Amino acid sequence: MKPYQQIPIVECGEPLVAIPLELFAVESPHPYEKLGAPYGDRSPYYLRQSVLANLITAQNYLQQQHPNWRIQIFDAYRPVEVQQFMVEYSFAQIIATQKLNLSEISESDRQQIWQQVYQFWAPPSLDPATPPPHSTGAAIDLTLVDEGGNTINMGSAIDEISPISYPDYFANSTNAIEQQYHAHRQLLSNVMQTSGFQRHPNEWWHFSCGDQMWAWLSNQANPINTVIARYGREGARG
């Protein structure tokens, strides 16, 4: 169990609503649908109503500093079935990248690979008490684009399973280009956190508002005024 999964959830019942994609830049085609992830008749471009309102606020803050820049949405709502697909896909990618033969690796090596996967991916739990953040409709993966629609370079790709994806990986670099990567990550973080979001400790691109991870991070930042999660897994309510 991840630490944030111990946070209680009191579901508020707020609906999932469609993201008005015309307001944002969008990764198209959707990266997980392109891989064959099983969304069925559900769309990834949904968020809880208040989370979407905060995202729009974040883009307004961004444009106060950089007119005509936009938030680019990579992923938002994610059914547990898609979480399962992507966890298995990521495991297979590590196997392929390292040129390993799955039938020949030891159980210990297999578990080490799973540990790498779960540093970045939440377990695809169906337990209502431990939902994957994206399955609540309260988490979103994103980056920024400039006025020409060019993706801002953050120094690593979204979903890269590597320490380079840690938000502060470039914080102490003396290389000018890497300093710029850090500045871009900080810009994204600042506009999102100013709008009520919290950033995943291991992922510069992942932000949430109202789920267990958000509550856990909020309580770490302000232990005197503790909060609980208000969004559970969408579709898990009785």
Rank of each mutant, 00 (worst) to 15 (best):
T57E: 14
S125T: 02
A122S: 12
Q64R: 15
N60A: 14
Q5I: 00
R233H: 01
L35T: 03
F197V: 00
L52C: 07
S50Y: 02
Q98I: 01
A139Q: 11
D159A: 09
F74V: 14
Y4R: 02
N172I: 02
I113F: 10
Y32K: 10
L142D: 03
P67L: 05
L52I: 09
I152W: 05
S50M: 12
Y181P: 06
P124L: 00
D127S: 10
V26P: 08
Q111N: 13
P132I: 06
V26H: 08
P20V: 13
S165I: 04
R70M: 14
S103N: 15
I158K: 00
R48G: 05
N190A: 13
G36V: 02
S135H: 02
F24N: 01
Q186T: 12
W121G: 03
P44F: 04
Q180E: 14
G196S: 10
S106Q: 06
L52T: 07
A221K: 11
G148M: 10
E33P: 03
L23D: 08
P38A: 10
N219L: 14
Q179H: 00
I7C: 00
Q6R: 13
A183N: 12
G40R: 07
I228G: 01
F120T: 04
T57R: 15
Q212T: 12
Q59Y: 07
L55H: 04
Q64V: 12
D159Q: 04
T226C: 12
I19Q: 09
W214N: 08
Q186E: 15
W205S: 15
R110M: 14
N225L: 13
G196A: 06
G137D: 02
V17G: 07
N60C: 05
G235L: 07
E11K: 13
P79L: 03
N175S: 08
H182V: 01
P201G: 04
G13H: 11
R230T: 08
D211A: 06
E22A: 13
T143W: 06
